[in-house]
Every structure is written in structure tokens, then in C-alpha cells.
Design a protein around this nucleic acid. Structure first.
Lengths: 409, 409
DNA sequence: AGTATTTACGAACGCTCGCTATCTATACTG
DNA sequence: CAGTATAGATAGCGAGCGTTCGTAAATACT
């Protein structure tokens, strides 16, 4: 450890700080271009200082110059305006699932340059690696970004991810997936920092970014499996690496976790598969119900919520039971975390208000401060958006304090 | 207009940064005095820079000069050594409870200057204010610190504390306490920044500081009531203000929270009062047990654990039941937070290994990553220590200009 | 159409600060 | 009592920021 926390030094360090300050100000107002005068205002620096910093950043390729805005009809000499040159450091986000691979490319300002999704009927681990490569190529081509320009990449994988080794534990559905070192594979393709994280974590990051502001967010991904991500003041909470694994919460007083089983008690109780099973049983018990009509033999999770929305009492009772189980499982965490909001995403979130209201009613009985309960607005793009978001954060964290290197492109 | 985001500026800002860097280095090695050469090493600055900074800090009273260490027999001219002058900014910590008021005074380096505790048989709100004033005076006198020198004060109160207004909700045992604006009262006495926080939060802060390092800590205070504090990488997690209220976790599938009741389900189930009641019932049912022998009519919580430690099966079964209820209540939060360690403090923590092992066994069945389970080493001083700690953090945060950019999103 | 006004860019000057290098001070060693 | 090793003080240099003044480019007014 050379220097402590506060990076001091000579005047060149001071200039770095000021350049970083200017760059940061531009980033904050992205994608709106800024005039130099505005930068002076926002950074509190003197004009020559800002001008010099802007020159340097233009040279290094971090900023791009705009012509005067024709719509801006103000008095005096028109100001030149600068904005982030997004292509300076495009980032890659991956969402790798057993049946679907999604790759997104985003520029430095957070603009989505491309998004490519490919579905398949359950790949093997080896096939999956091939598909990943193809989809990455496709997404980069569509975004017109050369592979060597990519500044950071983040991949989302289900299961519990070890932040450091990049290894994945507890993965369902893809045989041999935990043996694959996805990070190493991606490093071979990309030659840039590559990180791997839990899909629920990344979805939470995306949702938190979309909501904006500070506070604590508990973002639940509810599909066949259940996971959650926790974002506190914009930063992901990882714990020792397995934070947010709500799928393993016990629902019954006799439940215990079997480490061999890749699914946890709560997932078995209220995962989408379980909801469908409950619906089928209820339909069998009540053959004349709307639920039985709607679903027939291959009754689906969606059918349960559809029937409940039509006020079918049989379906409503199923939803009630699901909501109750879920709320009772989540309530302790809500009490302990006391989040600003709880957002539900994933396949089950399509159920809409029927489920949300039922959960909200139950949760109100079990918590002190009742957090806002919402459905995720990002739908299935949440994970890949969060992956890009994290990659962007990585780039900024590495580039902001030291924008010294002049990467001439 | 403040300086926006990142603190940049002229050379005077640079000097402030460097001075802060030096001060920070001294603080980190407190209470050990440092030679200038060591400061040069640690800060990475040049000697004249450090020397100038040290001069400035000596003038301002933040540092004090030591004579050469007679024990340090090294060659050459002996180095002058400097250390934090703790009296530069002493802080006050208060632990206000219904039956006991504790006030501690700490110097800038974290050394305890005085600790005064006064107990009484349940004060009214008005009496409590008077007692607080007296104990503060006493503690300040013992520490030989004039009241006007106090740089910050933090008070701990049970109940849920609103960080901003300083109002307290859900306070038991002290009639009219929630109507009192303790912060305002203390500001009248002290003329320095005053903050108020939950006692469990502050205890957690103290325990986290004692443990050191990073990671997530869940610190449970287990007495008649149950509360917990969460410390993530040294920083307290507050949520919207009521984080850590584990006492309100439901234990039964039919439990609901009654907002009128100041005690929650878990407190009613395994609070010290409840443990004693369980013990009494078990003793009645098994009059020949060691538990019944030990406890007699006014059987206490301590008796239950003592009998269990002597392997009395009746008492052990009570402990088992308590541990099981507690572990089942806490397990969801452990899954979600995935803490590095869970530390149990408060009166019940005196039970020792008997309880801890039982909880650990239960928790192992219900969680994925099993956190370290420990007893708090700080005993009853935890809360006031945490209060002083938070006051210190406040002082440092205000005094150290921190240009380490906190890139939040 | 010409002039005044407004706004912003650009360059020169002075100031502060930190770094390098040198010199002086002090105590232990032989 | 000289030699040596370590630490503290001092002068010169360079880098960067801030202030001030002059200049360029557009619009508004007469």
C-alpha cells in the first residue's frame, strides 16, 4: 500500500483530479451536451482550467465536439458544446440462461447500441459457449463496434457466483456449466476486464438505475426460480457472495435446506412450476371453476392469474396462498433491510396487480415500514441492462480518477 | 453554489488534500506516534510537504509532538514523533435507557477518557432529561473536558429513531419519551453536532469496529427486547430508518404485527422474559429436574442456561426450543444479507456456548453460506462505545476533506 | 446596412504549491 | 574527539490554477 486513502501528490495529480472532475460533470448530464460555461458552473473551476481539461479530453477521445445548436437562439457568440463520445469505451452485457442468450452493447453514455437475443431448446455447456460467441459477434457487428474496442464486459449467470474465481455454483438446467470458466472463455474472446455476476443481482442494478436516486432496493426475480438483488445507494450488496438467495428461505416449520438440491424450499413452494401445479390441483378439485375452463389439461401459471383477475374464487384462493407464502418468507428480510422499495420482476411478475395486491396486503400485516411494492418496468431486458450497467460502472471507476492514458483511436 | 461533484480547485485545495492525507495517516496508526519519515513513507508525499503539513497540524492543535523515544535506540539524530492530540476534538457518547444512563467521553484517537453510568428504578421522561444532564457533567468533569470543547455527540435510544427529526417511535417503558426532542435538548447543552440513533445500530457499529475489516456484520442485541444492527464495510445500514427490527419477525404462521404493541412476535417468543417463562413452566412440569432446583420460584433466564450447561435435559430442551425459534426467524435474513458474521450481544448473550451452539446447529440447516456465529466481546459497553464511534466518524468526516470521489451511480 | 450589445473564446501574468537537491543539526560509535 | 548515520531545515525549479484583459462571433437596434 503506497498511499493511503486520500490520493495526494503534486500538481499533476491536481490536474488529473480536475480533468476527472470535468469528465464526471459531462457524464452526469449525459446524453445532453454541455457548454463550457456550464462546466465552469458545475465544477466550480476557472474557465481556463476547464478549457484545458476539455481540450485534453477531446484529444484523448473521451469527449466529442458539437456544432452550435441551431435551436438555441441566444444572444452572443454561440458556445461550442461537448458531450461524451460514447464509442470511446463501449461495453458488453451478457445474459446467459439455459434456454436463452442475450447480448447487449452500450456506449459510454448508457445508450443501447444493440441488443441481440437468441433462444434455443436447452443447450449443453459446450454448445452454449459456441452460441455465446456467435451472439457476441452479432451484437458487436450490429453496434458497429470492433471487438478490441470493448472496454468491459459483464456476464450474468444463474446460480451463485464467486466474485473472484468466476466459478458458478448451484446451476440448474445446464449440465456441466459449473465446470466451465466463463470468465476465462470471455477473456479469450475480448481482451478486456470481464466480470461475472448473479442474474438477480444485475437485474436489481438495472432496476435501481432506472428508478434512480438513493435508498435501498430489494429486487426479486420470480420465475421458476427465485432470487433477489439488493442495491443500497446505487451499490450492489453481495455479502460474502450469495446475498439475496431468497429461493432457499424455509416456508414450513420443518423445512431444511438440502445443499445437494439446486432448488430451495421457497422455489419449490411458489416458483412458477409450483404455482401451475397448485392451479392444476385446484382445477381438478373444482372442475366447474373458471380456472378449469381456462387452463384445461396443460394449465399454466398465467392461467391461474388470468382466472384470478376474472374474480374466479378458486384461482383467487390459489393466488392468496401463493401471496401468503411469499410474503411470510420475505417479511423478515423486509424488516431487517427496511428497503425503500420492493420490486418484483421475472416471469411471475406478469401476473400484475392481482398478485401484487395480495402480497401487499399480507406484507402490511408483517412489517413496520411498508416499502413500496412495484412490478419491474424492465421486463426481460432487466438482466442484460444491469450487466451493461455494471460494465459501465467498472469502466468509470477505472477511468475517472486517472484519465491519463491517451488511447488514440 | 458549492463545488458540485468532485472537489477540484487550485493549489490551496491541493494543500488541504495533502494535509488531510497526513492527518489520515496519523489517525490510522493511532495511538502509536509516528516519525515524519514514516509519514513520508505512508503518504507517498515528499518530505518538505509532509513537514509543512505537520507544522500546520501542530499549530492547529490536531497533532502533538513527542520527545524522542528513549527506548528507541537507533543511530543518528533522533526523530521527533507526532501523534494525534486527542483533546483537540473529544466526543460524547450517550446510552439512554429506561433504567440506566451511560455517558462516555472519547478523544479523537478513540481512547476512552471517561465512562459514567447511573442506574435508577425507572425514570419519567422529565426526570430522565435531568439525569442525562447530570451524568454528562460528571463524565466531562472526569475526562477534564470543558463542555464547549465537545466536537460531536451521539445518543442511543431504544425504539425506532427518525434520523432527521430525531424523534423516537415505539419506545417502551418510558412514558412520554417519544414526545421529547432529545436532540434539541442536547444541542442546548452542548453546542455541537448531535445525532440520535437506535441502540442496536450503535452496538453493531462498536462491534464492527472492534472486529475490524470489511464485510457484512449482523449484530443482534438480545435482551428483553430484540434488535439488530447491520454494518456493511464499516458503514451502518439504516434502510428507511427502521432496519434491523428483528424483534418483529413473525414466529408462528398466524402471527401478525400489532402496531400498537411496542413488542413484536419474536420478542414475545424468545425475549429474556419469555425464556424465563418457558423455564418456569418446564420447572413446574418437571419438579425434580436440575432446572427446578436451581431456579426455585423466581427462576431466571440465567438459571435456564446454567442448568442447560450442566446438561439438565429439561433445560436443554428449553434452550433447544429457543434456539430453534430464533434461528428460524433469523435464517431468512441471513440468506438475504449473507453476512460475514452474526454477533449476539445483550443480556441473553451471557448464556454462552450452550445457546450459541444450539443456534449454530439450527442455522446450519437453513442457510447456504454459514456465517461465523459469535458472542459480543463488548458486553454492556457496546452501545455507548458505538455512540462514541459514530461521533468520531462524524468529526473525521467533517474535518477531513475527502476528495476521494464517491461515484454513486 | 451599420453600429451597439452580448456572449464566449483565447492568451498573458502572477500566485501558490509541491518536488528535488543541498546544507545543517544531533546523537551514537570507535 | 573525529566519524558516521539519520533527521530536520532551506533554496531553487517546475507545474498548474486563477485573474485579467483582449478578441471573435452572433444578435438586436437604429
Amino acid at each position: 500500500m503506497s498511499k493511503g486513502t486520500v490520493g495526494g501528490g503534486g500538481t499533476t495529480m491536481l490536474r488529473r483530479i480536475n480533468v476527472a472532475s470535468v469528465l464526471d460533470a459531462v457524464r452526469r448530464s449525459a446524453p445532453a451536451p454541455l457548454r463550457v460555461a456550464e462546466l465552469v458552473e458545475r465544477t466550480g473551476l476557472a474557465r481556463p482550467t476547464v478549457a484545458q481539461a476539455v481540450d485534453e479530453l477531446l484529444d484523448a477521445g473521451w469527449l466529442q465536439q458539437h456544432g452550435p445548436d441551431s435551436a438555441d437562439r441566444s444572444l452572443g457568440r454561440p458556445a461550442i458544446r461537448v458531450s461524451l463520445r460514447g464509442r470511446a469505451a463501449p461495453v458488453l452485457g451478457l445474459d446467459v440462461g439455459p434456454h436463452r442468450v442475450t447480448v447487449g452493447v452500450s456506449d459510454l453514455a448508457g445508450r443501447k447500441l444493440s441488443l441481440v437475443r437468441r433462444s434455443g431448446p436447452g443447450w449443453s455447456a459446450q454448445e452454449l459457449l459456441g452460441v455465446i460467441g456467435e451472439v457476441i459477434d452479432e451484437a458487436l457487428a450490429e453496434a458497429e463496434v470492433p471487438a478490441e474496442d470493448v472496454a468491459a464486459a459483464v456476464a450474468a449467470s444463474p446460480g451463485i457466483v464467486d466474485e473472484h474465481t468466476g466459478r458458478v455454483q448451484l446451476v440448474p438446467s445446464v449440465p456441466g456449466w459449473s465446470a466451465v470458466d466463463l470468465i476465462k472463455h470471455l477473456r479469450g474472446l475480448l481482451d478486456c476486464p470481464v466480470m461475472l455476476d448473479n442474474d438477480a443481482n444485475l437485474a436489481a442494478l438495472a432496476i435501481a438505475a432506472a428508478r434512480g436516486g438513493t435508498g435501498t432496493l430489494l429486487a426479486v426475480q420470480w420465475g421458476e426460480r427465485l432470487g433477489a438483488g439488493i442495491v443500497i445507494d446505487g451499490r450492489l450488496h453481495r455479502g460474502t457472495g450469495a446475498a439475496g438467495e431468497i429461493g432457499f428461505i424455509a416456508t414450513d416449520t420443518d423445512d431444511v435446506i438440502n445443499p445437494e438440491d439446486s432448488r430451495g424450499p421457497l422455489e419449490r413452494a411458489v416458483g412458477s412450476e409450483a404455482i401451475a401445479a397448485l392451479g392444476r390441483q385446484a382445477a381438478l378439485d373444482n372442475p366447474k371453476s373458471r380456472l378449469a375452463e381456462l387452463g384445461g389439461e396443460q394449465l399454466d401459471t398465467a392461467d391461474v392469474f388470468a382466472a384470478a383477475a376474472e374474480r374466479d374464487p378458486v384461482a383467487q384462493s390459489v393466488v392468496q396462498q401463493v401471496a401468503r407464502t411469499f410474503a411470510r418468507a420475505l417479511a423478515p428480510s423486509v424488516l431487517v433491510l427496511d428497503p425503500t422499495a420492493v420490486v418484483i420482476g421475472g416471469g411471475v411478475a406478469r401476473a400484475g396487480a392481482v398478485l401484487l395486491d395480495a402480497i401487499s396486503d399480507q406484507l402490511r400485516l408483517l412489517t413496520l415500514n411498508h416499502p413500496k411494492l412495484e412490478l419491474s418496468a424492465l421486463a426481460e431486458d432487466a438482466v442484460v441492462t444491469g450487466a451493461m450497467r455494471m460494465a459501465l460502472d467498472e469502466v468509470w471507476q477505472r477511468k475517472l480518477p486517472t484519465p491519463a492514458m491517451t488511447s488514440t483511436t
